[in-house]
Structure formats: structure tokens, C-alpha cells
Amino acid sequence: MTTVDNLTVKASSKTLMAIKTGKRPKNMGQIIRWLLLFMGGIAMVTPIAYMISTSLKFPHEVYNLNFIPDEPTIENYTYVLEDGRFFGWFKNSLVIATLTTISNVLFDSLVGYTLCKFRFPGRTIIFVAILSTLMIPTEMLVIPWYLMSQSFGWLDTQWGIMFPGLMTAFGTFLMKQFFETVPDDFIEAARIDGLNELQIWWTVAMPLVKPALAALAIFVFLGNWTAFIWPLIVTNSMEMYTLPVGLSTFGDEADVAWELIMTGAAISTLPTLVVFLVFQRYIIRGVVMAGLKG
């Protein structure tokens, strides 16, 4: 109680001092922080707002840089949703992003867990080799990927679009780092309790790294949902296009139909929102430590 009283006295005297010396009691650093965050928020929200705004405009109004359309219309949405191609692309993107996400969550975590919790010769070399692939830019990999797809007959197929991203070095690295936080005692206790290594990974280790799995799922889904270059290269037919590739074909050689592209883009953000909302609740740390001392 005495300590609290002392603190109150100290705080009050500080405020009084500030008033006497004419200084403002508010923290300038905090104001600057808020200002920067506000500007950051504006920078992020503006393109989305402009995308929605453009999707509600008629073609003749697209190049007017006003946020609120003079004559708002949902005609673009009707056009895009009635266009059979859009749902095909949407389905392709959804299948590819979902399967790739599941594959990454399973295999990146399996490899990460193995590299983290097992001691075997060459473990470090394998990990370094996986990490080193992060340093190779995608542009350099596109040609080998294409040649592989060609020789395996995967050109213009969903498998062709998916295969380079089914496992990622980044995901493996992320999961390995998170598995480091799972104490070995958990694994050993399960081993004594009679579980095999695959059961331990699935029943004990995986639930303890849910936040990392959620983060990985969001990254991978968004990455594949918005992927453009590789799907553009590996697909030839309209039916195999993914959403970003398909949307870029709206319009004709003379003019780009921005209002339709923006409409498609606006609709295509919905699955990403759902994925984020579903997984964000898992991004809460601190679960792991609850079963330990303290």
C-alpha cells in the first residue's frame, strides 16, 4: 500500500512539474508512433478501397481518380459472376492453394520435426542445403521447373502449377524453429507411453505448434492464391488458368478492362479473408509452456 501511495505521489509531482514548466504532459514519441501507424494504415487501406471503388464504376469513369463513383453500379459483379470462366479460375486457384497449403503444413512440419528432434548423420548438411535454396530467386528456377513439367507431361495441368510449392524451404525452416520450443520431455514421455514416432509427431508435437502451423497456412495459401508468374508460364489453356492469370486477360488488346479486373480481384479477396479469420485465432503463443514447470 505504501509503495502504491508513493507511486501516486511521484506521478502527481511529475505532472505538477510538467504543468509548472509549461511542458505538455503527453508523450511526443507516442504521438509520432500513432501518426506513423495511421499513415501505414492509410497506405494499406487505400488500394483496397480503390479496388472496391473501381469495381463499382462504369468503364468511362475508371480513369477518374475519384473514390466515390458518380454512378455506382454492380453491373461488373453481375458480368464477372455470369462469366463461366471466372468460376473455373476461382476453382483452380482454390484447389491449388488449398492442396498446397495442406501439403506444406504436413510435409514442412514433418521435415522440420525430423531435423529438430532426431539426431542422425548429415542432419546439419541437409538443413543447410534446404536453407540454401532460399537464396535462389524464383526467376532462376522457372526454366528448370518448366523443363521438368515438360518431361513429366505436367504442362497445363493443376499438378504442374502445384508441384514447385508443395514443400518450401521457408516452411521447413519455420517449423523446425518452432519445434525447438517443444521440450524433449514431451516427446520422450510419449515414447515411453508407447506411441510410435509418427503418432508422437501428430498427437503431441503438432498441437503444440498450432500457432506456427496457422502462420504457415496463411503464408502458403496467400502465396499460392496470388501466384502469377509460374501459373502463367505453365498453363496454356484458359480452363487451366488460375484467378490472377485469368483476371489479367479481361479486356482486349486495345484496352484493359480495369473495372472487371478490380471486380474479380475484390471477389478473390474473400477466400483469403476466410483463411485469415479461421487461422488467426490459433496465432496465440504460450500454449506450449503451460504443461511445464512454473
Binding site: D185, E188, A189, I192, G194, L208
Partner: peptide
Amino acid sequence: KHRDIAMVFQNYAIYP
């Protein structure tokens, strides 16, 4: 698992 033993760890190791 085949040794018919059970172990109690210093850090409890109960699954959170």
C-alpha cells in the same frame, strides 16, 4: 515402450 516402465519427469511433461 516395450520395457514395461513409466517415467515421471522433472518438468512434469504433461500435455498442455
